[in-house]
Write a protein that binds this DNA or RNA. Structure first.
Lengths: 149, 149
DNA sequence: AAGCATTCGTTGCAACTGCAACAAAAATGC
DNA sequence: GCATTTTTGTTGCAGTTGCAACGAATGCTT
């Protein structure tokens, strides 16, 4: 006669906020990411770097790291891939030669001119699909992002 | 004389919901994941498989895939690592020999008995830290998860 | 019952990731 | 001015991921 093992504490993964956030992030990101991966062959880390460059002109790896929730090695490698793809250029900053100045090439700018409207449309579609819940989500996220890190 | 390039459309990454969700997911997951990685050496995919097993007894790769937002190869490889670590066992289902029955070993159960309370505490801390915003966040997530996929 | 299609799970491969170590440049301290 | 520390960015390594292809088992069609 064998013992039944003692029961484990109840735990509901579907009610676990980090899990829910991960699923939500994955679904919303991938809808768009599939599109731009198919059309332009870029990944999410690359997309983040590109967006930051489109917005801010010349920036260093450090600037991006600080503002785009990426580690510096991620930025460094995303930049390398983008450079190889001819979408960005880098040269060194003459005032501080540790820094790298990243800028979009004309090809990169052209791509972003297509991509950014797609992203805006995606955002808009999300907002409309969720209605009131969108504003609740954003209010919650706002607090969460403020309180963590 | 060189032309100024035409300006790119405005786009604010920090207001982009998929980005915000990704950051939120990363931060909330990692607080806990750091703990259990340090104490037990397991990763997030492994954690998800374990939680599902703790909850559901015997399951196949397919069951987990369907319910835990993972691809089947992720489940398969997570299961392989867990098997090597002695935390789960697998044998074949005699009724359908394509299926694999995964179950926790006693060591796996013991680990989950420690881990699940940690996860509950983490969830509780999050709820308290966010207050009202937590309920808004959850309401928003609920809709989002319903509408996507 | 035989052939074809589908489901289930695994794996080879190439790309990507996370960590820690590193070199180069600049800032700081003495 | 020289040595030490800090900042910036890159890279080697080992482990992980995503995709597509695959074999085995079952279901389906005729």
């Amino acid at each position: 006669m064998s013992e039944d093992p003692p029961p484990l504490p109840e735990f509901d993964l579907y009610g676990f906020t980090p899990y829910r956030l991960a699923v939500a992030a994955k679904r919303t990101s991938e809808e768009l990411a599939r599109q731009y991966r198919a059309r332009f062959g870029i990944s999410i880390p690359e997309w983040r770097v590109l967006v930051h460059l489109a917005h801010s002109g010349k920036v260093s790896v450090r600037d991006i790291e600080a503002r785009v929730a990426m580690e510096k090695y991620e930025v460094s490698r995303a930049a390398k891939r983008l450079r190889e793809a001819g979408l960005i250029e880098s040269r060194e900053n003459p005032e501080d030669r540790r820094l790298v100045l990243l800028t979009l090439t004309p090809a990169g700018r052209a791509m972003m001119a297509d991509l950014l409207p797609m992203a805006r449309a995606h955002q808009k579609a999300l907002e409309e699909r969720l209605g009131t819940a969108f504003r609740q989500l954003e209010a919650g996220l706002e607090e969460l992002l403020k309180h963590t890190k």
